[in-house]
Write a protein that binds this DNA or RNA. Structure first.
Ligand SMILES: [Mn+2]
Ligand SMILES: [Mn+2]
Ligand SMILES: [Zn+2]
Ligand SMILES: [Zn+2]
Lengths: 127, 127
DNA sequence: TCTTAAAATGCAACAATGTTGCGTTTTTAT
DNA sequence: ATAAAAACGCAACATTGTTGCATTTTAAGA
């Protein structure tokens, strides 16, 4: 396996993601990093961070893609089985790490990842 | 409300979606319709069909967007609370209409839509 | 059936997002 | 210090979805 290096840009971007309360899109990360590195480099860093399992990707129903830090113990082969909430008012996407969904699926399916996103009004926008 | 019309293209596209076992992407629909209408028109038709609640949109974790027919009684204000399965081998996305997930979420969130997608190996690709 | 307004369409142009190739720079191990 | 691998910047490209506008089609009423 190709080993991955910790560069200045990579550390900075990880820090940005980890210190954010909400999941961030590529463009948001780019703005927050203020010319730290090229647009393409951000994409490549995000890829590496996902391979290392320190961040995860969230595809919201409206098509936008966001990234959030992983809040689990750093272990291999884990599943992000928590709920995400996407607010249609403030467009924030949050990890609800404590909420774990349950389901039962025919056993001829092999489940490797779950992606569970609820949309609506978040607690801050709710009246 | 702006009323919507049933055109040749719209009926054809709905038929394509309804007769497919798996959810279809915009490009797949375009290929299956073989020059029926413009690319843009397909997007607009998909929008109308979603407003009419005869199809629904599925955003898979890998970023691709697919469309599937709704298999519920034609009622207003329904929620598509069923599970989708996205196969990482054959890239098919299927509605598992019978599998209903359960979850509990803090009551200061107002849930309007749910999008639950499992990824892995589908029953056809599973050995 | 004829008339007419609204809805739908085609086309071109644009925008957003993500990817690839390649030459250069930086990191890490020897 | 040297060398190989990894990361980077930049430009170019690809894919996906959107918008404006002139033209055509649809559906409903006279
Ligand atoms: Mn999360
Ligand atoms: Mn479905
Ligand atoms: Zn909100
Ligand atoms: Zn499969």
């Amino acid at each position: 396996m190709k080993n991955t290096r910790n560069t200045v840009a990579k550390s900075a971007i990880l820090e940005i993601i980890q210190s954010s309360k909400v999941a961030l899109s590529h463009v948001e990360i780019q703005k927050l990093s203020e010319g730290l590195c090229d647009r393409v480099t951000i994409y490549r860093i995000l890829d590496r961070l996902m391979i290392e399992d320190v961040i995860h990707k969230i595809a919201t129903p409206d098509g936008t893609v966001k990234y959030a830090a992983c809040h689990h113990k750093h272990e291999e082969h884990h599943i992000h089985n928590h709920v995400h909430f996407s607010c249609e008012k403030c467009h924030s996407v949050t990890c609800l790490d404590t909420v774990k969904p349950s389901y039962s699926i025919p056993k001829d399916y092999l489940v490797k990842e779950i992606n569970f996103t609820l949309s609506g009004i978040c607690k801050d926008c709710n009246e």
